[in-house]
Design a protein around this nucleic acid. Structure first.
Length: 583
RNA sequence: GCGCCCGUAGCUCAGCAGGAUAGAGCAACGGAUUUCUAAUCCGUAGGCCACAGGUUCGAAUCCUGUCGGGCGCACCA
């Protein structure tokens, strides 16, 4: 329980007591009450808007309510001062020892500091990456992969029961293309001259080993055979190979999924039909004719009766088709069945992470989840905007035709996993992001990854140095937690501690908003405050962490900076970045 | 034509389950180095939060409209 939640509970009690004494009406709604640090730290440590929120309900002036509540808070031993300010804010200043002792709490909690139970252990399914198994991952996939992975960690840190899932699009036309492309490489492996790879097939070299393995396993039996003889076997063989490659790509970024869900199984086991029957029973399916959209060049528009889902009942722009003109299922039909499967597995929240180019698909999936769960299951679709790759400020040109695509692996190899992960999380998901190779590898404060890492490393540098000066001190978290915290009296030290007290609020609000980038920003700020304190020691020797002739003071300072490092490490852990102890 | 996202300092962006005087970094200018890693820090300057209405005690934040930029618009995935 963090201090702000504690004071929220205290406010609840105070309002209830005032109600009992008939100073305020009973049963007031505290929903919009906030309790947070004031923007201006000269106002105190904790601030609440409770008086303004209650003014209408209680039919009293905000300042009158504020005075009543302030009087109650003043009597608490942990509280040094309570002021009523502005339109009716209540500002609380805590006793200094309450602030100081937080360091001990942080050290005792270790990596659990900032954990929250707001998730109530509810089951969340987060689906991300879900790239077609037809080739290696490229840059575009990178951001969604990292975003989804970090969001999953964040939610899990905040008490949700998270399942990380990958939907394998292993059905449909692109898998036939994959199989044909692999077949070509198979012939090549058996010594045939395949010449130029024709337009409609995948030209990438990554299929060469697949062809070789096919030749190894099946020999020359299909060399002159008709497609109908080999395609059934090559499809799964090639998809498996692609998925192995994708998993390997993902592992370079430390991304792992709990569940890989195959689209093909939905086609084979009748789940699509079953799901559609379910929608039909709700009266949400009909046969109709769609009109061509205006303003686009739909020259080949074929007006025909189709099986349609009434997604317009749920806010979609048009009703959506389940069958293609050749009678096979649309991608949407299978996706409906997939989401129904997820609903059936008991998740209360579904999160899908997609590229922004799939934005037009959002409403129909939201519609379907509403329809199939009777509004019981939440669906939140997070779109990740484009990443612009730059090299020294100039855009990196990528062309599909020449095959000069930058893959995810290329990037990881060039700048490292930690840099890629951190940088991808320095923007909110729905804003586009520039990724400049030169900038992200720069070793300066210009580069947030470096800056945060450097703060962590600096702490450990001090710890090492301190052990040289005082060889017998114990720098473990549990031992430092017992240090004498009353040494923290300088404004920079206290403000650093207050900043750390905010960490639990940040994790909660980041999880609530489902925005892992807030963690990155918090860490940058914490690192900045730490660097500032460090430099204050250059001017004022008494503020240094290691005081040569004062072991006790040194130990308490080590406790402080160890707490900083602990939070940085915890935050980086959520982002999937390794904290370094030396640079 | 319609839908979704974005518009905040010269540049790149935070802040948005409404809250007090709108924040950071870069760039510019002026300072700190016999340093616990200066790979850092301190200071100055810089704003009609795109525009116009509305809701509210209170709006960068919520609603409506306009303008500007991005993405998408049966049957592909």
């Amino acid at each position: 329980m963090n201090i702000f939640n504690t004071y929220y509970k205290i406010l609840e009690t105070i309002i209830a007591n005032l109600g009992e004494r008939d100073q305020l009406p009973k049963g007031l709604d505290l929903k919009n009450v906030t309790i947070e640090p004031p923007r201006d730290n000269t106002h105190g440590d904790i601030s609440t808007n409770i008086a303004m929120v209650l003014t209408k309900q209680a039919r009293l002036k905000p300042r009158d309510i504020a005075e009543m509540v302030a009087t109650e808070i003043r009597s608490m031993t942990d509280v040094k001062k309570v002021d009523v300010a502005g339109p009716g804010f209540i500002n609380i200043t805590l006793q200094q020892n309450i602030i100081q002792s937080e360091v001990s709490k942080i050290l005792k909690s270790g990596k659990n500091y900032g954990r929250s139970d707001i998730g109530q252990n509810s089951k969340v399914n987060i689906e991300y990456v879900s790239v077609n198994p037809t080739g290696p991952l490229h840059v575009g996939h990178c951001r969604g992969a990292i975003f989804g992975d970090a969001l999953a960690s964040l939610l899990s840190f905040c008490g949700y029961d998270v399942t990380r899932e990958y939907y394998i699009n292993d059905a449909g036309g692109q898998i036939d293309t994959l199989a044909r492309s692999a077949y070509l490489r198979y012939k090549e492996a058996l010594g045939e001259d395949i010449g130029e790879i024709s337009e409609g097939l995948y030209p990438g070299d990554y299929l060469i080993p697949v062809g070789q393995n096919l030749a190894k396993k099946y020999g020359d039996r299909w060399l002159n055979a008709d497609e109908s003889e080999w395609i059934e076997s090559i499809r799964p063989f090639a998809t498996d190979a692609m998925m192995d490659m994708i998993r390997e790509d993902l592992s370079t970024l430390s991304i792992k999924h709990d569940v890989f869900f195959s689209e093909l199984t939905l086609h084979h086991n009748g789940q699509i039909e079953a799901t559609l029957n379910k929608l039909d029973a709700k009266g949400l399916i009909y046969t109709g004719v769609l009109e061509a959209p205006k303003g686009t060049k739909a020259d080949d528009w074929e007006s025909r009766p189709q099986t349609l889902f009434k997604s317009t009942d749920f806010g979609d722009d048009v009703d959506r088709a389940f069958k293609k003109s050749d009678g096979s299922w649309t991608y949407f039909a299978a996706d409906v069945a997939y989401h129904y499967d997820k609903i059936g597995r008991g998740f209360t929240d579904l999160i899908d992470v997609w590229g922004a180019d799939h934005g037009g698909y959002v409403k129909r999936i939201e519609s379907v989840v509403k329809a199939l769960s009777d509004g019981e299951v939440n669906i939140d679709i997070k779109l990740c905007q484009m990443v612009k790759l730059l090299r020294d400020g100039a855009p990196v040109i990528m062309s599909k035709r020449s095959g000069s695509f930058i893959t995810m692996r290329d990037i990881v190899e060039e700048v490292g996993k930690d840099v890629v992960r951190f940088i991808m999380l320095t923007r909110k998901n729905d804003a586009s992001l520039d990724f400049d190779f030169a900038r992200v590898t720069e070793q300066s404060k210009d580069n947030p990854v470096f800056y945060v890492q450097y703060a962590h490393a600096r702490v450990f540098s001090v710890l090492r140095k301190a052990q040289n000066t005082f060889p017998d001190i114990d720098i473990s978290l549990s031992s430092l937690a017992n240090a004498d915290m009353s040494y923290f009296t300088d404004s920079s030290e206290l403000s650093l501690i207050k900043n750390m007290m905010n960490w639990p609020r940040f994790t909660e609000s980041a999880a609530f908003a489902r925005e892992p980038h807030r963690i990155a920003y918090y860490l940058y700020e914490l690192a900045s405050e730490f660097h500032a304190l460090w430099n204050k020691g250059n001017d004022n020797l008494d503020l240094r962490f290691i005081i040569d002739n004062d072991k006790e003071k040194t130990i308490s300072r080590l406790a402080l900076i160890r707490a900083v490092a602990n939070i940085i490490a915890t935050g980086l852990d959520i982002l999937g970045v390794e904290p370094v102890t030396e640079m």
